[in-house]
Design a protein around this nucleic acid. Structure first.
Lengths: 219, 219
DNA sequence: TGGCTTTTTGGCAGCTTGTGTCATAGTGAC
DNA sequence: GTCACTATGACACAAGCTGCCAAAAAGCCA
């Protein structure tokens, strides 16, 4: 169920999705877009699953076959993007300076970012202004931090439970989160990617400098 | 409803709560303790409001007169503690070095901290292992950051929307959060307060040093 | 003590989210 | 065209949560 198409029937060898999978993805996108429209129109809380199902021409039961919850509908995409960006660190050359790897990750994230700025802004507004979603957003960033932590442990040469990978990965997540807040509050005036990069430079770079070089002390 | 006792009937002038208020507080504590016991025994998800109500000798309807939700039951106390600690910054001398104010805040927080270590550990385990609660915990810290942000804006002499108060307050919150994770993962072996202090020194101090002194540049 | 006012509580009815189950319709593979 | 698998819809149902109203309890005043 979770696995991708394992046997490409055509000659092409790229990610060939079966017809079913593509159809499923299209339905999923359709539900998502429909729901987002309703949310922006009436608000998150005032829109029921039944409303969404009706507007998307599916049954309420079917909704839950595409999304684990109403919350998931809005957060899944962001979660995937973040996880993908974080995991891309694994393909970085092992001896590259950590800051360079992070900059590379930002590039991956930027490439994944939707070009529809207004839509992203609306999404961000919805997510940050609805308490339950805001909590979910923070958890989403936290999930990315967990992936980052293992990477940092590897690069810093200590176990993941140590303070350094914990603090560094949390700092990166914080840089992301604060950038998102700034981007939203400025109505998208500044480029999100730039904001993230600046925050990482400010918050993470000094932290790494003290550790990647001479440090080999306690904790 | 939300206001405290305004007319103390006795001569004492401290925070005199009416009999009703004290009774209410006692019932609230009672429900909380009962529920925590059930959660630890059967798990958060496997314990229903009805179970809690029955064990606490109240009706399910009454439960919601004491707590906004099942989640709130576990998070309200922590939220209050953090808000109290953060707000205590307002009573600090205005020209005190920011790091000293933060250390003072940690003292307030430590004083509020329960002496029952096992109970706090169990609470932390419950909250961090239950996804929905974990998200709520993160939001709780985020709430503290919002209070911190205004304070930082004041001290740094810029508006709250600027990058510096944002990053510094978020860094403090992150220091808190990571300390909580470390404390939990180490089974409370290290003192929570110490962990927070060390994280603040590592993450926040360098950030402040670059800004409180010479800095008066752009952002 | 007795009566009045306010708060607290319980019960009920109802909405919403989310899940298990089963039958049915659609689709792809051969 | 048949067979197997998947997607869907239609229940039924548990649990969280809210509004509403009536009853009980608690404080208050004479």
């Amino acid at each position: 169920m979770t696995q991708a198409a394992k046997k490409p029937s055509s000659a092409s060898e790229a990610v060939v999705e079966s017809v079913r999978e593509r159809r499923r993805a299209r339905t999923r996108d359709d539900i998502e877009a429909t729901a987002l429209g309703l949310f922006l129109e009436r608000g998150y809380g005032a829109t029921t699953i039944e409303d969404i199902a009706e507007a998307a021409l599916i049954s309420p039961r079917t909704f839950f076959r595409y999304f684990a919850s109403k919350e998931d509908l809005l957060l899944a995409r962001g979660r995937d993007k973040m996880a993908l960006a974080a995991r891309s660190l694994g393909e970085r050359p092992p001896h590259e300076p950590v800051m360079d790897s992070l900059r590379g990750m930002l590039g991956v994230f930027a490439a994944l970012h939707s070009t529809d700025r207004d839509r992203e802004l609306a999404w961000m507004r919805l997510v940050t202004t609805t308490p339950r979603l805001a909590a979910g957003f923070l958890e989403m960033v936290h999930g990315m931090e967990l992936v980052l932590r293992d990477f940092m442990a590897l690069r810093l040469g200590v176990e993941a439970g140590h303070r350094r990978p914990r603090l560094v990965s949390a700092a990166v997540g914080t840089a992301f989160r604060v950038a998102a807040e700034m981007w939203h509050d400025s109505d998208g005036a500044e480029e999100m990617t730039v904001l993230v990069r600046e925050n990482v430079e400010t918050l993470v770079a000094p932290l790494l400098e003290t550790w990647t070089g001479p440090a080999r002390t306690s904790c």
